[in-house]
Computed example of a mutant assay.
Amino acid sequence: MSGSPFSLPPAPESLQVVRERVRLRPFEESDLEAMATYRGDADVCRFLPFEPQSPDDIRRRNGHLMGGTSLEGARGGVMLVIENDGTVIGDLVLFHLDIEAGSAEIGWVVSPAASGRGLATEAVRALIDTAFEVYGLRRLVAQIDADNARSVALAERLGLRREAHFVENEWFKGRWSDLLVYAVLDREWMSGDASGA
């Protein structure tokens, strides 16, 4: 069997994505305190694969994703912070890169203080644009706890396709949890077949 026809373009030397109300940029050490404000909130972490985090926890867990713009590496991925009016309100990850398939997973964490204004939708839309246009990926996947109504609504608002519903597939934070898998292809996103494009 021959190799995949997919290949990544070179990583950008710097990255800054500006939209109407949000700016995405690589993580900086000075972001840790702001990130710990929302990542340290038990309600925010309820459906996430970690407990509330301190700045040291964030650095330890995400160090391999922080500060760079290259998707390639030992664990493949980048972390971008979301700013609104100069304030860090969340972060996004593009990770679990599969180079042969041209695919990666996306994830997001947003401060409750920023909810209800469409900022998360704007930021995740910008991340998807960046994944396809800058990084040249062809497929993105988001894995979401079925009880995480806000993230499910965000994925559906953006037009991601629900590809799977795994019922009680994992013992997670004291309960059997269902997992939803959403995905979108670059051609769907660019053509507008995904309603969020």
Rank of each mutant, 00 (worst) to 15 (best):
G3M: 04
F6N: 12
S7G: 06
L8Q: 10
L8M: 10
E13V: 07
S14A: 15
L15Q: 07
V22F: 04
L24W: 00
L24S: 06
R25Q: 09
F27C: 03
E29S: 10
S30M: 12
S30D: 14
L32G: 04
L32K: 01
T37D: 12
Y38K: 05
R39Q: 05
G40Y: 01
P49L: 06
P52G: 14
D56N: 11
D57F: 12
M79I: 04
V81H: 03
E83A: 03
N84Q: 09
T87D: 07
I89Y: 00
F95A: 12
H96E: 10
I99A: 14
E100N: 09
I106A: 04
G107M: 00
P112I: 09
A113L: 14
R117N: 15
G118F: 01
G118W: 01
A120Q: 01
L127S: 01
L127T: 07
I128M: 09
D129H: 12
T130R: 00
A131T: 04
V134I: 13
L137M: 09
R138K: 08
A142Y: 03
I144K: 07
D145L: 09
D145G: 12
D145V: 08
D147P: 01
A155M: 06
R157W: 03
L160S: 02
E163K: 06
V167T: 15
E168S: 15
W171F: 14
F172Q: 08
W176K: 09
L179N: 13
V184T: 15
D186P: 00
R187A: 13
W189A: 02
A194I: 03
S195H: 11
